[in-house]
Amino acid sequence: MDSITLTADLVALAKISAFVTAAAELTGLDERATWQVQLAVDEAATNVIQHAYDPDHPGDLTLTWRCEGNRFIVALRDYGRQFDPQHVPPPDLNSPLEERQVGGLGLYLITRLMDEVRFDFNPQGGNLLTMVKYLTTGPRDDVAILPLTGRVDAVTAPQVNREVHAQIGAGARFVLLDLAGVTFLSSSGLRALLLIRKELMTLGGELRLTGLQPQVYEVFTLTGFTQVFAIHATVDEARTSFGLKHA
């Protein structure tokens, strides 16, 4: 789970768009599904920005996302006036130009682009709009083993990221990095592994490491990161530790 809180003004739109696009891409939504999510969230955020608060005193807007199985869930919360979707006029999709009304298009797009849409309100929590997009490929429930070789440093970290993200995009959630072939790990490399670990946890998954050569293990002990990462002596031991049925 990850979230962002911004003041509900127009400047927030670009940030919200970037945030949710990155989340959708990380989760493995394809290009079209990512665009659909981006547009739905933009319309929802626009509604909050334009209607929730007094324009001179905009309050906050919080966007949260998480992944549960094959459901990509986005929630938008504001503390402004209560929003009742029943009060929004149904969209006019057919009238000729001169008579065409443009109200209700934003809400209509949200319901067409997302697979599930729910509006909740209570006086303490404010408005909560929950939207779900289904992933076409369900997440894998087995361990994806990725061998790394050579140096893991500032130069090679982008390539490592690409490889892991490709696995995530194909559904991997439980990733074991086999570092048996890694001869050198710098702090940049460590940072990259830390980020991958965080991303997998945000998706409800896990990162484990195995095969660390002594000089690589030493980087972890020196920086205290043996406390943070799950490091295993063998691939089999790591596999079992995931605790999965099909590890």
């Binding site: 981006q38 933009d42 319309e43 626009t46 130009l97 065409r100 443009v102 298009l105 934003g106 797009l109």
Partner: peptide, 19 residues
């Protein structure tokens, strides 16, 4: 790259006015 409903609104109002 992208258009959302406020953009659609501007376009339709512009067309009505132009015509």
């Amino acid at each position: 790259a992208y258009v959302s409903s406020p953009g659609l609104r501007v376009l339709i109002e512009a067309r009505k006015k132009a015509r």
